[in-house]
Simulated assay, not measured.
Amino acid sequence: MLGGAAKGSFERLGGSDEECEAYYAPLRTLLQHHPLDGLDLDIEEPVPLSTPVRLLTRLRADFGPSFLLTLAPVATALLPDPSHPAPPRPASLAPNTPNPLHRSLPHLSGFSYAELEASPAGRLVEWYNTQFYCGWGDAQTTGWYDAIVAAGWDPRRVVLGVVTNAANGAGHVGLGLLREVCGVLRARYAARGGFGGVMGWEYFNAGLGEGDRDVVRAVSRAEETEVGATPPAGPAGWAKALGLVLRAETPPAPSAPAPPLPSPAAVVAALAQPAVPWPGRDVDALVALGFSRHEAVAALNATDGHVELAAGLLFER
C-alpha cells in the first residue's frame, strides 16, 4: 500500500515532471528490489486526476501487465451526490460504468473515481479496495454496496473493505454478520460474474474479538470432519470462515433470502449514516461551522479526534 495516513505522498508524486521523478525513482527502486505482486494506491489527500493517471501509467510501463494495480477509495467516492441532478450519460460510455459527469459524495481523494474509471487509465486498475468503515460506509447490510452497483459500478471490480477488529476503527462488523452479508452479495451478483470479495484491515488481529472467536470455533467444529483438524483461530480462522462463504462451490445459504434490488435513486436515498469513531457532539461542532458531515469526519480522522486542530485543518483547505 502507498499513501493512506501518510499525507503528502501523492502531493509529492503530483508535481512537475522533475519533482515527480525525484519521488517516483526511489519507489520504483523499492518495487524492483522486493518481489511484490502489486501496489494499492490509498489516496487520502486531495489531488487532481492527473496524479493517479500518471502514476498508474508509469507503474504499468515499468512493471508490466502482471503487476497488480489497485486503488482504495472510501465508499462515498463511488456514490453520486443525490443533491445534484444526474447529467445524461455520454453515449460512448461502456455498460457497468458509472457516469463520470455526475458529482460524487464528499470523499478523501479530490478527483472523480467515476471519471478515472471511464478513462483509458481506468483499465489499468484491477479493482477498488473500497473502505466501508470509519464513517465512509457501512458493511452491516448490503445497502451501501448495492448503492454503488446501482450507480453503475461493476460489482466484480468493487471489493467490500472492512475493519477486522473493533480496535482498528469504527464500523467493525462481526464475523457472523459479515458472513451473512457476503452470502447475500454472492447470491445477488452471481449472474453478473460475482462481487469483488472482501478486503480486511488489518490481518494481524483479525478474528480475535470475542464474538469472532465464537464464529471461528463454530465453523471449525462444522468443518472438522472435512479438514481432519480444527483450523487455527485468529487471522487464519477469520479468513477461512469468510472463505467458506466466498469460495465454496456451494456456499451456505443466507438465513433469509436476498430482497430484490430497488431502484438506484431509492438505494442511495435509503442509506443510513455509518458509524464514526468520534463523539457526535464533535462532529456536530464542525458541521455547525459550515462543513459537511463527511468533511468533519475526515478532519477528525486526520487529527485523531482533536476538534480544534480539525477545525483549523478545514479552514486551511
Score class of each variant (00 low, 15 high):
Gly38Lys: 04
Leu39Arg: 03
Asp40Thr: 01
Asp42Val: 01
Glu44Asp: 08
Glu44Val: 11
Glu44Thr: 08
Pro46Cys: 09
Pro46Met: 07
Pro46Trp: 04
Pro48Gly: 05
Leu56Tyr: 12
Leu56Ser: 08
Arg58Leu: 15
Pro65Glu: 13
Phe67Thr: 05
Leu68Phe: 12
Leu71His: 06
Pro73Leu: 02
Val74Pro: 00
Ala75Arg: 01
Leu78Ala: 00
Leu78Pro: 03
Leu79Thr: 07
Pro80Tyr: 09
Pro80Leu: 11
Pro80Asn: 09
Pro82Gln: 13
Ser83Asp: 15
Pro87Lys: 11
Pro87Asp: 07
Pro88Thr: 14
Pro90Tyr: 05
Pro90Cys: 08
Ala91Ile: 02
Ala91Thr: 13
Leu93Cys: 09
Ala94Arg: 15
Pro95Cys: 13
Thr97His: 15
Thr97Gly: 13
Pro98Ile: 12
Pro100Leu: 12
Leu101Gln: 13
His102Thr: 14
Leu108Asn: 09
Gly110Ile: 04
Gly110Asp: 04
Phe111Ile: 04
Phe111Gly: 02
Phe111Leu: 06
Tyr113Ser: 08
Ala114Gly: 15
Ala114Phe: 10
Ala114Glu: 11
Leu116Arg: 03
Ala118Ile: 04
Pro120Glu: 09
Pro120Cys: 07
Ala121Val: 06
Arg123Ser: 15
Leu124Val: 04
Trp127Val: 14
Gln131Ala: 03
Gln131Phe: 00
Phe132Leu: 03
Gly135Val: 04
Asp138Ile: 05
Asp138Ala: 02
Gln140Ser: 15
Gln140Pro: 01
Thr141Glu: 02
Thr142Gln: 05
Thr142Gly: 11
Gly143Ile: 05
Ile148Pro: 02
Ile148Asp: 03
Ala150Gly: 14
Ala150Tyr: 07
Ala150Asn: 05
Ala150Pro: 10
Ala151Arg: 13
Asp154Glu: 13
Arg156Tyr: 01
Arg156Ile: 13
Arg157Lys: 14
Arg157Phe: 01
Arg157Val: 07
Val158Gln: 02
Val158Ala: 00
Val158His: 00
Val158Phe: 00
Val159Asp: 08
Thr164Cys: 15
Asn165Leu: 13
Ala170Ile: 04
Gly171Cys: 09
